[in-house]
């Protein structure tokens, strides 16, 4: 008999394997946030290194959100071909199917994060490695939850593929904007800030910003951890339920 960790590793390494033969997809995935950074960062007002300190964690969170919300899109194809069904009949634990797939999506994300940081170093950007690592753990928790929700969405939309994209795209940008990833929320009207306070990603972003500068012992770290864990747990609950109910 296997363990949840071993099952997760089985799913994760299976998912990762095609990338080994086709590293080009990772390269493509990494270019996108760089383009974003290059076109967006010059618009930020004030001191550049100060702006980057605010902006770099945001970009990393954003690509993480994009990547994990796509977890279900790979699944859609596997639902159609039959390999998803084949895996459901194996003794693999259901959460492992979700976690393994979601974690695979954030492997390119980690590579992206490293690349972005390296690119920003010449512009005076400095990062706290310990804080950033803890930040990645928080992001992984959040991504597992987002990935699992995306997985559940793919299961729900398996007969109308376009539905997956409609829902994913419709939710993606409000989540992104209401988290203060691209623009600060501080100057926004009250109703917007109230809405944002219900968005767990908002707490994750705040935590990342503090952690990347080395500000570990703050309440934002705790709220970020709690928000990520809540999204993770909720996603896994919904995802496993969707799997068990799917016909």
């Amino acid at each position: 008999m296997t363990s949840l960790a071993a099952d997760t590793r089985t799913v994760f390494s299976r998912e990762l394997r095609p990338l080994r033969y086709d590293p080009f997809t990772i390269i493509i995935a990494m270019v996108q946030p760089l383009v974003f950074l290059a076109l967006f960062a010059p618009l930020l007002p004030g001191d550049k290194s100060e702006a980057l300190r605010w902006f770099v964690p945001g970009i990393i969170v954003m690509s993480c959100l994009f990547a994990s919300s796509m977890t279900g899109s790979n699944l859609l194809f596997e639902i159609q071909t039959g390999s998803h069904e084949r895996m459901l009949v194996t003794p693999l634990r259901r959460p492992a199917l979700l976690i393994g797939r979601a974690l695979k999506e954030i492997v390119p994300m980690v590579a992206q994060a490293v690349l972005i940081v390296v690119v920003c170093l010449p512009f005076g950007y400095r990062l706290d490695v310990g804080g950033a690592l803890l930040g990645l753990v928080i992001l992984a928790g959040f991504s597992i939850g987002m990935g699992a929700l995306s997985y559940a969405l793919a299961l729900a939309a398996k007969n109308q593929e376009w539905m997956f994209w409609v829902v994913q795209q419709t939710l993606l940008f409000p989540i992104l904007l209401l988290a203060g990833v691209l623009l600060p929320l501080d100057g926004g009207p009250g109703w917007l800030r109230t809405l944002a306070s219900f968005n767990p990603l908002r707490y994750v972003v705040d935590a990342e910003r503090a952690l990347f500068t080395g500000d570990i012992w703050r309440s934002t770290t705790v709220t970020g951890l709690v928000a990520a864990a809540a999204v993770g747990a909720f996603g896994l609950f919904v995802g496993v339920r969707a799997m068990n109910r799917s016909t």
Partner: peptide, 21 residues
């Protein structure tokens, strides 16, 4: 349907299938 993922290699799929069990 087809149990093997289309972007995978057959041998790899067999090995992960074994690991799953």
């Amino acid at each position: 349907g087809n149990g093997a993922g289309h972007s995978q290699r057959g041998r790899d799929e067999l090995i992960s299938q074994g690991r799953a069990y």
